[in-house]
Every structure is written in structure tokens, then in C-alpha cells.
């Protein structure tokens, strides 16, 4: 198993490449999802304030 992770000696390049891709794309997904949830929460809060009047 550890031979597999050695990636024929190129482990120090292959794994960081995939890790970096995961962090950048994953980070963008989390950031966008977070802002999405915030916008929904704010919108509902504002609509509650406006509509009951």
C-alpha cells in the first residue's frame, strides 16, 4: 500500500497537485455555499420585517 502512495517517487508532486485542486475548488464551493445560506437567511429576516406590517 505504501508503495502506491510513493507514486513511483513523484509523490511530492502528484499529491500536492490533487490536494491543491481540492482546497481551491472545495474552498470556492464552501465560500459560495456559505454566502448562499447567509443570503437566504437575510432575505427571510427582511421579508418577515416587511410583510407583517
Amino acid at each position: 500500500m505504501s508503495a502506491y502512495f510513493a507514486m513511483g517517487g513523484y509523490a511530492v508532486f502528484v499529491w500536492p497537485a490533487y490536494a491543491l485542486t481540492a482546497t481551491v475548488l472545495g474552498g470556492l464551493v464552501l465560500y459560495s455555499w456559505q454566502r448562499y445560506r447567509d443570503s437566504i437567511r437575510n432575505l427571510e429576516r427582511l421579508q418577515r420585517q416587511v410583510s407583517p406590517r
Binding site: 470556492l28 464551493v29 459560495s32 455555499w33 454566502r35 448562499y36 443570503s39 437566504i40 437575510n42 432575505l43 427582511l46 421579508q47 420585517q49 416587511v50
Partner: peptide, 23 residues
């Protein structure tokens, strides 16, 4: 998927701005 999420966020934020402007 990301595009749809971000577009929906943008539309929500526009609604929020409009509501604030109206209030």
C-alpha cells in the same frame, strides 16, 4: 452547480437591496 448557487445568491442579494431601498 457552483454557477447556479452563485446566481441564486446574487438574486437574493438584489432582492435584499431592493427591500432595504423600499423600506
Amino acid at each position: 452547480a457552483l454557477l447556479l448557487v452563485r446566481m441564486r445568491t446574487e438574486l437574493n442579494e438584489r432582492k435584499i437591496r431592493a427591500l432595504r431601498l423600499n423600506s
